[in-house]
Amino acid sequence: MYDAMLAETVKITGAGGDEVEAYVARPLNAGPHGGVVVIHHMPGYDEAHKQITRKFASRGYLAICPNLYYREAPGADPGDASAAARALGGVPDDRLVGDVGGAADYLRSLTTSNGKVGVIGYCSGGRQSFLAACRLQLDAAVDCYGAFVVGKPPEGMPFQIEPIVHLTKDLSCPLLGLFGQDDSTPSPEETAEFEVELKQHGKTYEFHTFEGAGHGFFDVDRKSHRPKAAYEGWKKVFDFYGRHLAS
């Protein structure tokens, strides 16, 4: 099997017609391929999420990770860009939706696309993945321990965001949720409340909560990494996308 891929930085059209930097990885065979928009975590558009983007390409997906902090700090170190965005209260929800929509349109425009696009996000990106799936027409969404879908940020946190569980009725696609039993943002009680809403509105979803794992268990560069939970989580992600994004 021909397994070459191309990975590069491109510019896409994001919210408000703004030019936004993004990292794209794609197989070089004929396809057709499903697409995945990778939403980076709060610490920023970093090497870890570029690696995740390449991981999807290695499994036969067109993948793109938009730099959500590009407007605040183009060309900056991910940590500095993240600090600049946090100082302004985080990424506004409407802007996030526009940027993810632009990234999805970019994937659909590729000649090897099968027209299907999913989204995945980690930490703040998990919430944003659900948000995008409620505001855009997508084919699959993955929420990896997204905080504040249910419940507001505590006092003192530099985020101007509100809970969005009320948007569940508008969810456009199947949802996969991957959570840690030891997490507090979101807590198991909050994910249970989220699940009640999904059931109430008859949405297609599956939630998995991993014992011995807390927030950030996918992150190989942090102490929070839990190899067993991450391994099982990746299996569930690829099974889920295989069912909903494959040609």
Rank of each mutant, 00 (worst) to 15 (best):
M1D: 11
M5I: 15
E8F: 05
V10Y: 09
G14W: 10
G17H: 12
A22G: 14
A22E: 11
A22V: 08
V24Q: 03
A25L: 06
A30F: 10
A30D: 14
H33F: 14
G34L: 06
V37L: 00
V37A: 01
H40Q: 06
G44E: 00
D46F: 04
E47A: 12
A48H: 15
I52L: 12
R54C: 13
F56R: 02
R59F: 08
L62H: 14
I64C: 03
P66W: 02
N67S: 14
L68D: 08
R71K: 13
P74R: 09
G75N: 09
A76G: 11
A76D: 13
P78I: 05
P78A: 07
A83V: 15
A83F: 09
R86E: 15
A87N: 03
A87S: 03
L88K: 15
G90A: 13
P92S: 07
D93M: 05
L96P: 05
G102F: 04
G102L: 05
T111V: 05
K116N: 00
I120Y: 02
I120N: 00
G121I: 03
C123A: 13
F130G: 09
A132N: 13
A132G: 09
Q137R: 04
L138A: 07
A140F: 07
A141I: 08
V149G: 14
G151L: 10
P153W: 15
P154Q: 10
E155R: 11
I161Q: 07
E162Y: 01
E162F: 02
H166W: 13
K169H: 07
S172G: 10
C173K: 03
P174L: 10
L176S: 08
G177Q: 11
D183K: 15
T185D: 06
S187I: 07
E190M: 06
F194H: 14
F194M: 15
E195I: 12
K199L: 11
K203A: 12
K203N: 15
T204A: 13
Y205E: 15
E206L: 03
H208K: 13
F210L: 05
G216K: 09
S224F: 02
K228E: 12
K228P: 06
Y231W: 04
Y231M: 06
E232N: 09
K235T: 08
K236S: 05
V237G: 07
F240N: 11
Y241G: 05
H244S: 09
L245P: 04
L245T: 02
L245I: 03
S247H: 05
